[in-house]
Design a protein around this nucleic acid. Structure first.
Lengths: 207, 207
DNA sequence: TGTACATCAGTGAACGCGCGTTCACTGATGTAC
DNA sequence: TGTACATCAGTGAACGCGCGTTCACTGATGTAC
């Protein structure tokens, strides 16, 4: 393994933030960190020096905004969660709950497909994260439970919305993670699979 | 991040293999490599020096059996696949196809639950693997398709066994990967979820 | 109005570490003659 | 039966690299007096 083949990141030219605007570097570093994860495909691709270089700044400047590498990692994961929740939440616009659920499912799949590494980070769970980050994950799940509850209510069903939401989430999660590494040969595509998630779990409009 | 907190592995005392038995080190190294992945929870936890140390041997000895680190990683992943396929295949003993499918599902879940890191490696897909390793993954999937075909035949159904097998696999995969990082609060347990995989997908005995 | 000073947004050099990999070497053991 | 030799199963020292982190420093800018 030749380590020199690792991502040689563009050292951005960058001018010092004006006084009082130091926080802008924090945002730049988070963007750089996410980009590193996306490019290397792994959370281990995120290094403090790498993020600094990509943001056009010396490694030391990172310590003005994050206590240490762990803090940078935690903030980056949280940033990914926020992006994810926004992407899924913004897609749910229809007034019919079943359609809304389908819209969320499609947005979910789109996010996971287009930003596979960022998506993987959400559920890696590997590095122990502060409660704050776990909390936003829970709130994203609560959004799903709420829509499922609406669908079940509209269909006059009394199944437990949390249990059904877990079913939806496990299945969709399985679909998108395997889609990333499935051999083309057998893979039927994510859309027919999503259709079946809705019908097999009894979440289509009519009931 | 204090790197010195990483796994400080027991340097096993070990005596040189007798002449002609050099291949035994290869097996020891694979075992050590799998153990490293299991302990660190990530494929990046597998290092050539780490595996050598754990096997009680100098880093250089690894090169007697593997061309470079990539070869060690590929062989380790393949070893995990073999363990996995054996575990699932050996569990399918019943003569009723539906029961056999359920047995495989339980063995699948057991493997993923008890060796989460080894399981994760199977579908990481991240490092490009030689065809040989991809092949064994395909053959494991073919085992699943075969049982599903039997279940469908026994029930007189004409659904596409490959498509249904993908449905089973995506859902079960989602269940076991989320089980590893799900907050206890909402998680209903893997068994009720597995029951639902069978019933919702119409794979229970009677039809 | 001028200037000393505190603050802010960063740099630069150096550290010890573990990594993959190179080159050269060792020392026991079986075998050919 | 003795011995030279090839083979086997490894070692040891060193390399250059990127990493996280430390300590000390810089230089522009706003503000208090």
């Amino acid at each position: 393994m030749r380590t020199s083949t690792l991502v040689n990141v563009k050292a951005v030219t960058r001018e010092r933030n004006p006084r009082g605007q130091g926080e802008r570097l924090r945002a730049d570093l988070l963007r750089a960190a996410v980009a590193l994860i996306a490019e290397t495909g792994s959370i281990d691709g995120l290094t403090l020096r790498g993020a600094a270089k990509r943001a056009g700044v010396s490694p030391m400047a990172v310590y003005n905004h994050f206590a240490d590498k762990d803090a940078l990692v935690a903030a980056t994961v949280q940033h990914c969660w926020t992006k994810f929740q926004t992407a899924v939440g913004d897609a749910a616009v229809d007034e019919d709950p079943s359609t809304r659920l389908r819209q969320m499912g499609e947005a979910y799949v789109r996010f996971a497909t287009e930003q596979p590494a960022e998506y993987a980070v959400l559920f890696s769970g590997a590095p122990v994260l502060p409660d704050q980050v776990v909390g936003i994950g829970m709130s994203a799940f609560d959004d799903l439970v709420a829509v499922v509850r609406d669908v079940l209510a509209a269909n006059g069903e009394d199944r437990d919305p949390t249990f059904v939401a877990v079913q939806v989430h496990t299945w969709v999660h399985g679909i998108v993670t395997l889609a990333a590494c499935a051999p083309q040969e057998h893979w039927p595509g994510t859309e027919p699979l999503l259709d079946e998630v809705m019908t097999r779990l009894g979440l289509t409009p009519a009931g």
